[in-house]
Design a protein around this nucleic acid. Sequence first.
DNA 1: ATGAGTGCAAAGGCTTTGCATTAGG
DNA 2: CCTAATGCAAAGCCTTTGCACTCAT
Lengths: 155, 155
Amino acid sequence: MSEVLADQGHADHAVLHGAAAERVAALDQRYTASRRALVHALLEADRPLTITEILAGAKGMPQSSAYRNLTVLCEAGVARRLPGVDDLGRFELAEDLAGHHHHLQCTSCGTLVDFAASPQLERALVEAARRVAAETGYEITGHRLDFDGRCPACA
Amino acid sequence: MSEVLADQGHADHAVLHGAAAERVAALDQRYTASRRALVHALLEADRPLTITEILAGAKGMPQSSAYRNLTVLCEAGVARRLPGVDDLGRFELAEDLAGHHHHLQCTSCGTLVDFAASPQLERALVEAARRVAAETGYEITGHRLDFDGRCPACA
DNA sequence: ATGAGTGCAAAGGCTTTGCATTAGG
DNA sequence: CCTAATGCAAAGCCTTTGCACTCAT
């Protein structure tokens, strides 16, 4: 959640932009102003953002640039696109940059909020993953846990 | 998963169609042939189906009818639409008809497979939900747990 | 007859792409 | 200079909607 995973000061922002630039460069691409602006937007938020929300914050950026650069950032492993209940693309920083967390989604307005699971639960999830892997033959690489509910505003 | 939650014989299929018909009727709507065909398709599969997959199975059904009837089935609580991993709408039977389960998703080919979590994990999830609800003020109604990995075919 | 359901086609809404222009290395 | 990136507009794709026709009660 925000207190834990983001807002750790501007120093970390610089570090993160550096890591982002590195990953983008690894694809022979440039860490341009708009890409930096996108990362900044994701960094400021404590929840996944829709394209519309991102564009609202980064005034003047054309939609096509946002989509294209977000795609690049995802390919570079800087960002991640997640599915939502309302079929709107939502973006957040990659887990290894923002920290592992889960989402709480309002089934009414679709808004997502980040939250961290307890260590015990995480352990149980990893253990369950191991079991399912053994049962199915899948090679499991991660998990996604979302809680559905109604936010205070919608309830 | 398939062995546990589906394929329990034709008797159960009849029971399920009955339940579906009842729920649709509760909305003053009819359990028509195409709606029955949709439920049949979902019942046969041991995983969520895309519209395309459903249409392939129910030959001759127009897309618009599939969408409209799937919407009705969702409203009636017979089916459920899943947030598409790849922005493709995927449908499955409602949890109280098919049983509570989770999904294993192949990050390579996108296919979803059902699986059941252990009772212990389910308890841990419910407990975690309670905690998060208390912390955030959300009214939590359920959870979604997905494992990501590579299926045997893709690995 | 009366309202629900169906099918076709057209419209919507989010996302991607083509192409000429600009900018970074 | 040369390739990547940008911006605008047009095209794509899944999904929804309008409308006239058919069907069940």
